[in-house]
Write a protein that binds this DNA or RNA. Sequence first.
DNA 1: GTTGACCCTTACGTTACGTCATAGCTTACG
DNA 2: CGTAAGCTATGACGTAACGTAAGGGTCAAC
Lengths: 255, 255
Amino acid sequence: MYKVKDVANIVGVSVRTLHYYDQIELLQPESITPAGYRLYTDRDLERLQQILFFKEIGFPLTKIKEILDRPDFDRMHALHAHKEILLEKKKRIEEMLSTVEQTIHSIEGGTKMKEEDMFKGFDMKDIEKHQKKYSDEAKQKYGKEIVESAERRTAKYTKEDWARIQQESNDIYKKIADQMHTDPSDPEVQQAVADWRQHITDYFYECNLEIFRGLGDLYVNDERFTKNIDKFKPGLAAFMRDAMHIYCDQQEKER
Amino acid sequence: MYKVKDVANIVGVSVRTLHYYDQIELLQPESITPAGYRLYTDRDLERLQQILFFKEIGFPLTKIKEILDRPDFDRMHALHAHKEILLEKKKRIEEMLSTVEQTIHSIEGGTKMKEEDMFKGFDMKDIEKHQKKYSDEAKQKYGKEIVESAERRTAKYTKEDWARIQQESNDIYKKIADQMHTDPSDPEVQQAVADWRQHITDYFYECNLEIFRGLGDLYVNDERFTKNIDKFKPGLAAFMRDAMHIYCDQQEKER
DNA sequence: GTTGACCCTTACGTTACGTCATAGCTTACG
DNA sequence: CGTAAGCTATGACGTAACGTAAGGGTCAAC
């Protein structure tokens, strides 16, 4: 029979932790004295030890309770699922690290990094400017008419409209960026690309396949586009161009 | 002038988040209507964008507030410090992953993994067994007398005593493990090693330099010791042996 | 019987919001 | 001009896993 502090010293946790585990019914001492003192047995200590093992590998206490309270619980499945979670977390942290390092690097490099470069454009003016770029480029390549019709349409948009449009386009970018580990011909990617073309058609101009293909090229040939797009994820611009080409090839074949 | 929902849509955060940022004075709208509506300006949006950048790389909001509120704040230092934190987290997760994978592997391998292998010894009996190992080994190498005197002493210990002793020895292991990035000759390490010898002398037997040095060798030559010690941190056993050797060399020189 | 070392419960603080609940404001429509 | 839809606001509780008092019993020893 061990009292709280004995247990705490033996396994190296705090008394508070034992109180808490008692409270959430994760580890309740086998007996209690008339004075209310918790008395733990060796069996309790074993359970605690198991709790600590699962805790060490990052399981939340609720899961641990499930695992320990139900002997039929599929530990193997739990471990695999948990591994996935850990891999996700690791990826997140690695992304953070890479961003931090890039930031440190670009400050050290004396580039001094204007904030406009550092952050994605977001407000109405930025979106307009962004669109202007498209327009100018498009003018040279596909004639004025389309562009002017686009400008007539965008001129009417309220700031709420712009917000929604921006949001929607961000979503598409993100969806594609999330699929960069697969192939540009992947059905999910192709669906997102189709959405992207539809988005442009809906909000800016009738985006035929010729224009769409040219737009894809623009993404890698014009560094203003490349930089902006690659902010979502490095390499996204090139990936999108490939996906857009594949999309156009397939559409043309279908006719 | 944007209302909360406009801002939320534009930058992709929730209204609640904006309320919260207002509350903790991280981002307060430039003006408020008579009805209490928050009105954000472009300047506010820029600040929000910066907040999101630092949040993305994992800074806590309190730090972000410091960074943004004080233009003289050393961002470079903050970034470096933050990088360290991220590296720590990454290490933790990688350790978890490795343990999870080991566990999965040993279950799959049909080894079925007895709990004694899976968990560190912790209770009184385990500690005693653990000590027995020392005793047996010591018997072969340094004769019975010392060992028997140790056993006479340890026989008197209560479970509280054992708990305290175990706790203390764990602390020493941890202290040394924490210094593994430095050299075994590092003063802090050497101090901990001295503590370790004192610990053994205090609670088990008069640990002279010859015995102490031999004990260090045991830590890497006997896998029962190695495995137990390396549970604190892989490589700890070897590191301790090196540190103990250096300690003994110095002590012998001083005479 | 009085220290001193333990033990107990209660309860707030932590992080960054999500999720109601309740209620006031604004705007478009009939 | 009334009203319903769609905003907005302020609480306030919940989350995870304890840390940290506060205030107050218990037990063994001197």
